[in-house]
Amino acid sequence: MRRQVFMILLMGLLSLFMAHGALSLGKGRVDKKDIAEEIRKRIQAQLIRLGIPDPLSPPATRGFEDLPLALRYLPRDPYGYPDWTRAMEDGLLLPRDYIYGPEELGKERHYDKDVVIKVKDEVLGDVIFSHRKHNYWLSCDNCHPYPFKEKRGETKFTMYDNWKGKYCGLCHGKVAFMLRGIDNCLRCHTLRRN
């Protein structure tokens, strides 16, 4: 008898927990979907004019078995692709800076300041560009002076340029995470304004 009551209680708790989870999940999704719809409305005409495929349609979701063996156990982003920044921050990866010796890098400068890139849009927040995260993988001369001039505010570009494979799109969309899907949008456009 006692066992039965216990089981029923357990089941009740479990169902409550699951319902709560499902509800909160649904809420989050609706919120993001609304943002995506709003953005899509704004940019659709320009996208068609420039011939850019819809960036708000998410990339193909990757399953565990889908990924090559070497990448399966890395932290993964909402679409199932390896999250290299998280892997770096968690210390899961220890990639080398050079092949034979540190003299290959020459005068390596470290720069880890954040840069706020202002965005002309009311829906998405400004971008916080983290030099620290990028300098970990790349050296300064990978990005400066081409495609980004070193002086702040001198290089002006739009999101359409990025989607066409210029500026950020030189890496993002080829080796770094794709500029597609609302979850990926919000990885850069993080700064909320009032």
């Binding site: 090559p68 990448l71 390896p82 990639p95 092949i99 993988w137 790349l138």
Partner: peptide, 13 residues
């Protein structure tokens, strides 16, 4: 991606 596990971008680029 296979190479990126062991080397940073700056090792080759």
């Amino acid at each position: 991606w296979f190479h990126r596990i062991r080397y940073k971008c700056k090792a080759c680029h």
